[in-house]
Write a protein that binds this DNA or RNA. Sequence first.
DNA 1: CATGAATGAGCGTTCATTCAT
DNA 2: CATGAATGAACGCTCATTCAT
Lengths: 214, 214, 214, 214
Amino acid sequence: MQVTGDEAPTQPPDPTRSVAAAARREQIIAAAVAVLAESGYGRTTFERIRQHAGISSTRLISYHFGTRDDLMEAVLIDVALQAQRAIATRVAEARTPTEALTARIEAQLGWIAEHPAAVRAMYEISMNARDAAGALRYGVEASAEANVADLEPILAAGQRTGEFRAFDTVLMALTLKSAIDAATVRLTRPPRLTLDECIREITGLALRATRRDP
Amino acid sequence: MQVTGDEAPTQPPDPTRSVAAAARREQIIAAAVAVLAESGYGRTTFERIRQHAGISSTRLISYHFGTRDDLMEAVLIDVALQAQRAIATRVAEARTPTEALTARIEAQLGWIAEHPAAVRAMYEISMNARDAAGALRYGVEASAEANVADLEPILAAGQRTGEFRAFDTVLMALTLKSAIDAATVRLTRPPRLTLDECIREITGLALRATRRDP
Amino acid sequence: MQVTGDEAPTQPPDPTRSVAAAARREQIIAAAVAVLAESGYGRTTFERIRQHAGISSTRLISYHFGTRDDLMEAVLIDVALQAQRAIATRVAEARTPTEALTARIEAQLGWIAEHPAAVRAMYEISMNARDAAGALRYGVEASAEANVADLEPILAAGQRTGEFRAFDTVLMALTLKSAIDAATVRLTRPPRLTLDECIREITGLALRATRRDP
Amino acid sequence: MQVTGDEAPTQPPDPTRSVAAAARREQIIAAAVAVLAESGYGRTTFERIRQHAGISSTRLISYHFGTRDDLMEAVLIDVALQAQRAIATRVAEARTPTEALTARIEAQLGWIAEHPAAVRAMYEISMNARDAAGALRYGVEASAEANVADLEPILAAGQRTGEFRAFDTVLMALTLKSAIDAATVRLTRPPRLTLDECIREITGLALRATRRDP
DNA sequence: CATGAATGAGCGTTCATTCAT
DNA sequence: CATGAATGAACGCTCATTCAT
């Protein structure tokens, strides 16, 4: 994802080569997430990030990330990967597709509840970052795909083991994603539900929707 | 030292005094709505609005609306009032609370379906406009209140006539609002529903939720 | 040549509409010419121009001209037009093609000798201004064409009147241009010639090259 | 507090000590020449040179050459020496001053025709490099002197042997230099001449100008 | 009702350079 | 011999806004 060539600042550091650079990047990304969540995309300037990160110069940001757009992309990728990893870890512990489905829902809702700022930051970026032509850079489609990509295999596995009934796995994945999104909103906006209520609600729905007809 | 108000070089002209001024204001607001919907809040600059409106100078915008924030507020109010009026008109034709409730839902969903740009513009403003301190100027609460304000009287009226059962009218109004919001999303994002399906869904839900137990 | 639309600063002033704006533009262009001649293209910054023009803010420059490239183009056009006009005026006074040819050479060499800064400024721009792709924006070809455009009609007219012999007018125009360019160099670099010497040299050459064979 | 010289963090390594360092320097100079010729002085940044040279970091450039100005000077000197050497070698083969004069002209024009990028690079540097005060660092005078320095001895020798007539050798050298410069332009810009034509032209001129009157 | 002219503040970006190993 | 990390300074540009008519 690193830009090479002309656009990059002098000496773009290879993040994989140096732990110090990686740490700096993490520090800056964390600050960017906080500012995005608190102040919104439009007010997330290098200067505000600099203040929040407690570093001396905004130059340090462009040194590590290049342009503002590059930084935003780095934040988006970083946060998405973190979420993905957290969820994948918990799903990996499941022994059956049913458990996996439950774990997946719990993990996602749990992660969202635990990282409201990160979620908000992703939202700000995906709703505001635009390319030169003015089109949204990270459209709804992209995030939809991302959220569905790991759900569909679980459903397919469940059908293979016979735990789940026959249905279109892509469509079901999309439906579950929508349900989770709806529940997510209920975590933050009235009529509010607690995390446990959300999880219970969605897992109940998912299990009923996928289980073999008796 | 000019003897003018605080917000503009010459105070925004009294819209009742001049039809020309009112027309200009409408023209600019319409352009602002279009730009907001197409380019997002951050890229909705005076210059872009000027182009879209086909007027000669951005000065004309600040002349009529004062600051950018003032313009955004004017857009928000204008659009909200328009929606409110359209809905109120249709609700006013209803003869019973039940009819009013149905009309209210149909009218709102209908208006949303017919004015996607306006809806998007309101969304952009409410999600991005911030005050000097950095706080969202038109929080979720504000729009919630607005959307609920005309719903609650209908419910109360239904209870008085005995058509509706006993329930907390505020809570029920909020619940219905949430349901409508959810349906709204289904108009634009998969799994998609048609306007008619949305209306049927929500009115069915509302009627069942409010009617007297048999 | 005025950029319209997005790239323009707020309220690009129409230079034809206001004498004040035209005066400001002239003032800024004059300062730009001086800085270009003195400091070269790379050091011709808004700030240096601002100082030289004795104006308060660099913003005034971008207000009137837009981007730096736009300014440079404006300078180039302005200077070229000025030269063109000065030359055309003197050529217009000529009664015969022979006189016109002489006048043309005298006028161009005279203008160059009188406006060394302007000549240098044009040179700096044409040798340094590049487009986004990195290619020279105002190639040698462009200036060659410009310098030849008014020469060729004179030659053609002389052939019609019978004062000049038969030759390819385009080729002859190019040749004369080359001779003038060479003479120009001799005005500034050793072995140096005076303006009068240059004029005598080139007009002598031109007249001999074009006159009817006896 | 490092005990180093003024210009670089660690003093530019002694080129005689290490062949590796010399090779690096050559590599970087070659890249710089290419970038100068292609992109012009203003766009010849460390980053672009780095890309062109295929090295990892711009730091390597400043390590070997110090500042940007130092690099440019190194390029200028390197290219000039190369040209000088090529020309001197061919002149050394001549047995008489007349042969030497011919060889000198042929060699210079030949070198120019064979190394357009190097010629262009020298030109870019000499026309753009400036000192802190803003004055051209390598003025026209400098290059004139350089080009004349080896011409004058040839002429003087010819006078001593009696092959050449009496004339002011410095003035004649300058004149010949001007003629060569003019021919150089004719290699690249219309009305164009081939290399052979140029050589014939200039050598013809030179021999006629210097030979004893019969 | 409309416009022209001017302006200040802030932002991202670029570039060479320096301090460390 | 080479590199990584950091940094300061300057620049062009954008935007909303204000002072005049």
